[in-house]
Design a protein around this nucleic acid. Structure first.
Lengths: 193, 193
DNA sequence: TAAAACTGATAACATTTGTTATTGCAAAAT
DNA sequence: ATTTTGCAATAACAAATGTTATCAGTTTTA
């Protein structure tokens, strides 16, 4: 058993049932790759042809605004996925950039592999459904928090969703994730309001 | 052919293939109901046991903040769905309220029916996947807009996503959807800044 | 190891957005 | 038909948040 795939195997097994034969067939299509801190996994305007699964390390998904500012929408830590889902599903140019925040080990699931899984795995469509539902609920919660929580409350909640993220990335990325300026976040943390 | 179901049939057919026999079996489980303006389809803390499909009229999905303010997260117009997906999928108490903004005709898909569809329809899981993906992308776009667009830009975009919504609901609900105060929206519209 | 780039705190100031109250008009209820 | 309620505009003020600049301490790079 390839230990590089043990985490994603466990992750998928927590969602659907997959027998030995299916796993053998399916797992042969994964690719594993290492990235150095600051390396880019997906560039804006490229077509996102893979879903990334983080074995080790940390990825950041962000987009760039007209004025050049970056807006971080998601951090993918160990055992989580990273993808521009729109670009991936529709094979259209990406609006997002995906960047390694630390030296990372990443498992690639190609679009071809995922589509093939829909058809060839007994529970391929179910896997797709459960993943889409899971990330829908995450984003739904994120919207609810933007609407109802103060920035500081969101700052605290963020640490629950992304444990130790505050220790792993510079503060201005946190501010970007919270959709506030880094100055404002610093003020909130240090209660100089 | 029941004309009350023609819209949802077309909607589902645009997503998956379904033969006559499957449709006959599946469509027998829909229920159709009329609601008067201001009637509530889903109360907070009730379990959302149905997905609502709007044949005619307009629904609003919102939640209530600690201070009593309402935050509107979605408008469901003709040929669109409305649901507290979290409550529906996990059969947990709802955080949201769903209310008719106009006299409406609504098709009910029960949780039982949907789960049965996953198993009994050839493309049941695929239907679930495509719907989850569709609404994921809508919410993903919504987050991107919150991060990158000004309130006034979001006001203009909203009219693309929900055609004629400005003519159909009072302005303060629009403000609530945009996550700004009604006074602020009025100022933006009347350029008194 | 020296230089450069990055980070986070802070201050001063500008801008955006919210809150409350008032008013006139329109819509809905009786 | 008249009363009540709801709605949108507006003004005055308050609070939240952004912008720019500076600085000291780190970390990274050459």
């Amino acid at each position: 058993m390839n230990s590089e795939l043990s985490h994603i195997q466990a992750n998928i097994n927590s969602l659907i049932e997959m027998n030995e034969e299916e796993w053998t067939y399916y797992s042969a299509m994964f690719r594993v790759k290492e990235f150095k801190k600051k390396e880019i996994l997906l560039e804006v305007n490229d077509i996102c042809s893979n879903i990334f699964f983080v074995n080790k390390g940390l990825l950041r998904i962000y987009f760039i605004e007209k004025n050049g500012d970056e807006s971080t929408i998601y951090f993918s830590q160990e055992n989580d996925f990273a993808v521009d889902y729109d670009s991936f599903l529709n094979q259209t140019p990406s609006n997002y950039t995906i960047e390694a925040m630390e030296d990372s080990q990443v498992v690639f699931m190609s679009n071809k592999m995922v589509v093939e899984g829909y058809n060839k795995l007994r529970n391929g469509e179910k896997l797709g459904r459960l993943l889409a539902e899971k990330y829908f609920l995450i984003f739904s919660k994120k919207i609810q928090n933007i609407y109802t929580k103060t920035p500081f409350e969101r700052y605290l909640l963020m640490n629950e969703q992304f444990p130790n993220i505050r220790q792993r990335v510079p503060q201005h990325y946190i501010a970007s994730y919270l959709n506030i300026s880094s100055v404002h976040l610093s003020r909130l943390i240090n209660k100089k309001l």
